[in-house]
């Protein structure tokens, strides 16, 4: 038994080491465009594995990511921009004095972004999970809308629909990739612990889980707040990558994209969420030509922005109808190797 754990740890270390090497190699050898895509993949990996924790592992259908990512992005942006930069760009209303006073370095900014998100998640947990969580999807959907409306209508804090610009570009592949590795590692550690088992038990049969002494309210709250924390951090990384954010970035569409990723990867599988991210974010880049005018020789189609999303929606529908389990089902990558050994 002991030896098995040892071996697992060596394999994990080898995977982490290769990932770190790849981050270094990509940062030093790849062109800017490719690095940008890899940054996106890293950030969406963080978002997908955390979204999968509440949605796939715990089985609580939720539509929260856009709300918490927005919170994280705004908190980080406000903490990174100095008072002069804020004063200069707030065109609709002048900022509140306390907004000018917000200031922190990148690490603390990301930490506050995550903490603030998970505190909000905690307050949502009480009304929602007290009653079985059946309303979670509706509540989180509404939450996303409210956050967006608040961002638009409080220009003293958020600069309204103009958004925040000139955010220092702290995000690079070391940050996004490093935090993505930590996030995947941490989430897998949760999944492979008594907490992860209890989350799966809640998904499979909540009454039976309660009958085993599991405090299902606590378990659902843990999963939800963990997701929110990492979504806040991911939002912060995104803000410091894009350097400008506005309410339009965080529509329901954002959540929908993540939903496609985790369903495609296999709801409940963390490694599946990573694979889904690479396919969807990488694929979205590759399919960029779909949105542009196309010359078929005999005829030329005009530019059709959003065509890629149509393709992704079709893929989602296909998976839901014919391949419910997605690519990985509920298995993890290591389970595939185990099968072979038996």
């Amino acid at each position: 038994m002991n030896i098995v754990i040892r071996k697992d740890q060596w394999i994990n270390l080898a995977i982490i080491a290769s990932a770190l090497w790849f981050i270094w190699f990509a940062s030093t050898h790849f062109d800017e465009y490719t690095v940008r895509i890899l940054n996106n993949i890293a950030i969406f990996t963080i978002l997908a594995v955390s979204y999968n924790l509440i949605n796939g592992v715990t089985g609580q259908f939720s539509l929260e990511p856009n709300g918490f990512v927005a919170i994280g992005a705004y908190v980080t942006a406000l903490l990174l921009l100095d008072a002069d930069a804020k004063d200069y760009q707030f065109d609709i209303e002048s900022p509140y004095p306390w907004v000018l006073g917000l200031q922190a370095n990148f690490v603390w900014a990301l930490f506050f972004a995550g903490t603030f998100s998970s505190l909000l998640a905690l307050t949502l947990s009480f009304p929602v999970f007290r009653v079985r969580g059946d309303y979670l999807a509706i509540v989180t959907l509404g939450f996303g809308f409210i956050i967006r409306i608040l961002a638009i209508n409080n220009p003293e804090i958020t600069n309204g629909s103009l958004g925040l610009n000139d955010i220092p570009e702290f995000s690079n592949l070391y940050w996004t990739g490093g935090i993505a590795i930590l996030a995947v590692w941490g989430i897998l550690n949760i999944v492979n612990s008594k907490y992860g088992r209890a989350m799966k038990a809640v998904r499979d049969d909540e009454d039976a889980a309660i009958a085993m002494g599991v405090n299902t309210f606590k378990i659902k709250t843990f999963a939800f707040c963990t997701s929110a924390f990492l979504e806040g951090v991911g939002g912060g990384l995104l803000a410091a990558l894009l350097t400008s954010i506005s309410p339009d970035l965080f529509t329901f569409f954002f959540t929908f994209q993540l939903l496609i990723i985790i369903v495609l990867g296999g709801l409940g599988s963390t490694t599946g969420a990573v694979i889904g991210t690479v396919l969807v974010i990488g694929g979205a880049e590759w399919m960029r030509f779909l949105d542009e005018p196309m010359n078929f020789g005999l005829f030329v189609t005009p530019a059709m922005p959003g065509m890629r999303m149509v393709v992704f929606s079709l893929i989602l529908i296909f998976v839901m109808l014919f391949a419910r389990e997605g690519i990985m089902g509920k298995r993890e990558l290591k389970d595939l190797f185990k099968k072979g050994k038996k």
Binding site: R197, K200, R203, D204, D205
Partner: peptide, 19 residues
């Protein structure tokens, strides 16, 4: 019977040790 259907026999029993 209400076992946790996606989980192994071992994990089913381990849920009993949760608390």
């Amino acid at each position: 019977i209400r076992l946790f259907k996606t989980m192994s026999v071992m994990d089913n029993v381990l849920i009993g040790f949760d608390f």
